[in-house]
């Protein structure tokens, strides 16, 4: 009944289409469907193997990551608890040592930075108190 009913439905709606014979015109390689099952099963088996491998790897990587994190947190905590910030009494450091340190480690950009940070109100450096020879020596050395 169904196919007859469908035919009528087709004829009304699309007579050219209804007249056409319903057949499969595509070609398939010989023996394709006979081999398809085993090919699918092979593919499923390799997918299963891949799945079980990927199930193992995340397990140990998760544990390893957790262990690393715990160790890192432990070390940080330990260092923070035991580390005492050294307090420096600048007044006790001899002036010559400071000068030597600055001579050794200061470069042009630091000099500029020091000048920028210098508050003329709080210093007793006056450019007019520097003699020309010292100024010339400084410029010769630094520029």
């Amino acid at each position: 009944m169904n196919s007859k009913h469908r035919e009528v439905e087709w004829q009304d709606l699309a007579p050219s289409l209804a007249k056409m014979e319903k057949k499969n015109p595509y070609l398939v390689p010989d023996g394709y469907f006979e081999n398809l099952q085993s090919r699918i099963e092979q593919k499923v088996n390799s997918a299963k193997a891949q799945r079980s491998r990927s199930n193992i790897i995340p397990m140990w990587t998760k544990y390893a990551a957790a262990a690393c994190l715990t160790i890192a947190m432990g070390i940080t905590l330990y260092l923070n608890l035991n580390q005492q910030t050294p307090t420096v009494n600048w007044a006790e450091i001899p002036e010559q040592e400071i000068v030597s340190y600055l001579e050794l480690h200061l470069d042009d950009s630091d000099t500029q930075l020091l000048f920028d940070q210098l508050n003329p109100q709080q210093t007793n450096i006056r450019i007019e108190h520097i003699n020309n020879q010292d100024l010339e020596n400084y410029l010769n050395q630094q520029l």
Binding site: Y26, V28, Y32, L36, I40, K43, V44, A47, K48, R51
Partner: peptide
Amino acid sequence: DHDDADDLVQEVFIKVWK
């Protein structure tokens, strides 16, 4: 295309299995 259909049918059954 047959080759495309072949790939697809295998993919479908892998998904069905999973």
